[in-house]
Computed example of a mutant assay.
Amino acid sequence: MGAAQAAEFWALGLGEPWPVSGLHGYGVAEVLEQIKPHLYPADTSGDADTTINVSIVGRPNVGKSSLLNKLYGQERAIVSDVAGTTRDTIDALFERGDRTYRLIDTAGIRRKKKIEYGNEFFMINRAFKAIRRSDVVLLVIDVVDGIKDQDRVLAERIAAEGKACVVVLNKWDAVEKDDKTYLKSIAYVREMLPPVRWADIVFTSALTGQRTLSIFDKVDEAVEQHRKRIKTSVLNEVLRDAVLWQAPPTRKNSQQGKIYYCNQVAARPPTVAIFCNAPKLFSDNYKRYLERKFREQLGFKSTPIRMLWRGKRLRRMVQDESKKSRYPKPYQAG
């Protein structure tokens, strides 16, 4: 019906008409797909520097400097059993294949209450700055000591900064293994580090070099996923299937959340805006369910996904404010 009515507008000679329904969200995603290239032209400002920044973070004495030396191919950082040997961030720039990497070794980050104001305070701040300027963060964990509270704090920091992440379980050569050790270790990391449960995991030994070079493959994949853009039509198809499979729950007051459409509004990290009737009607469990469906169908491995929930009333408010700004208020004397 809508397509037939829209066909009449061909007579205007303005191009193809697009039938939409703002009330039900019909056709809105298709229109957004058409206008997005004009609203958000391709950003070429970052094309000049194609270097992939990889920061190496973790608690003291987990093998960060040893890992840097193995990845770099020579002794770039001082390695010692004494905690706190690395006092500042160390950059190592090199080429591998057709890509250029900048490895950033950081100081070991201890619990906040153990940090005194002075050199250690400033070197911890520099480590946090290294996370902010990196494309991928290697969260190094001593597999012998296990995951501590500070590892969880670092995981929360990485997720909050929206950075891609690869969890490196170092000192794997020192672990007594059986046929279940590998799967148990993966389940352990997923359970203990919920902020980065989406991160890929690699088991290495910086001492022997075991699987250290495979980290580059994980980094390349993480960068690709972190910068990925998905067509609006594909996103909405996945969203439609997810809602059909599990509809939003109904609240006690008989109110039910309704999702109209979604659109990816940014990358690094991938950010999806979901337009609905009222964001407060959607529980955290349902939001996590949608995120899991996006990952299952579209990938997004080793990168966080930010989901922005936009209510219908909020959109109307923005439209009203934009209309008011176009027409200045009349002058009133006195």
Rank of each mutant, 00 (worst) to 15 (best):
M1R: 11
E8V: 14
W10Y: 15
P19Y: 08
A42P: 11
T44Q: 09
G46N: 13
G46C: 11
D47H: 15
D47T: 15
T50V: 15
T50E: 14
T51E: 10
R59I: 09
P60A: 05
N61G: 05
G63F: 06
K64M: 03
N69Y: 09
G73F: 01
I78N: 06
S80D: 08
D81N: 09
T85R: 01
T86K: 02
A92T: 03
L93F: 10
F94H: 04
D98L: 01
L103M: 10
L103C: 03
L103R: 05
G108M: 01
Y117N: 08
N119G: 06
M123F: 09
A127W: 00
K129T: 12
I131S: 01
R133Q: 11
D135G: 12
D142Q: 09
D142M: 11
G146A: 12
K148V: 07
D149H: 10
A155I: 01
I158L: 00
E176V: 13
D178H: 07
K180R: 12
I186K: 02
A199N: 10
V202H: 05
F203K: 03
E221V: 10
E221Q: 08
R227T: 14
T232W: 02
L235S: 04
V238L: 08
D241P: 14
P248E: 13
G257H: 01
I259S: 00
C262E: 01
N263G: 04
A267H: 07
A267G: 09
R268G: 05
P269V: 07
P270Q: 07
L281D: 03
S283R: 12
D284A: 04
L290A: 03
Q297A: 11
I305L: 08
M307L: 13
R313F: 04
V318M: 11
V318H: 12
P328D: 07
Y331E: 09
G334I: 13
